[in-house]
Amino acid sequence: MLEFIGLLLLFMVIAAIVAIETRDLLAAVISVTAVGFGVIIAFFYMRAPDVAIVPIVVEVLILIILIRATLRVGLRTFIGNRDFFGMMVTMAMLAVIFLAGIRVFDDFPPFGHPVMQRIADAPTRLYIANGLKETGAANIVTAVLLDYRAYDTLGEATVLFTAIMGAIAVIRKKARKKPTEPEVGEWEE
């Protein structure tokens, strides 16, 4: 199983590089979605269908939205060169963070041995032991999301609400005009 996850990681890395380097926006969008589906397959192999369902539907929706947006606007290619100095600074920062952070992996539990097996009074043990009794929900993930950690879910819902409000505030001005009465040369269609 670990080999399969490694192969999947390699595939995702290649797809991410393609997404960054290609000059065709449609190919970049499809490559980003390929990375997302790699993550989804990894979730399924780690037996987390709860976590995998949401990315599946969201990836499909994002693919539709991005293709619709990029193809309509007609931005087929990305023109422009990257700033060499800025990219070097970014790479140096990433290298420093990576070298400093690699020590963290020493303290990680080995793959497939979650931290709750090592720590006796980890909260996850309590959730698994008492989840069904305390909440009555057979699906432990939902019990955590909407009972033990419901406050977190409320914040998540607020983030979505705020994002929609921001999107409406930004886009409304352009969308309010009827496309049937365009000013000459102003509208794209």
Partner: peptide, 15 residues
């Protein structure tokens, strides 16, 4: 909200 996002992006025109 996701339906609204989609409709907004479909209705959007570039000036």
């Amino acid at each position: 909200s996701l339906f609204m996002v989609f409709i907004l992006l479909v209705l959007m025109r570039v000036i």
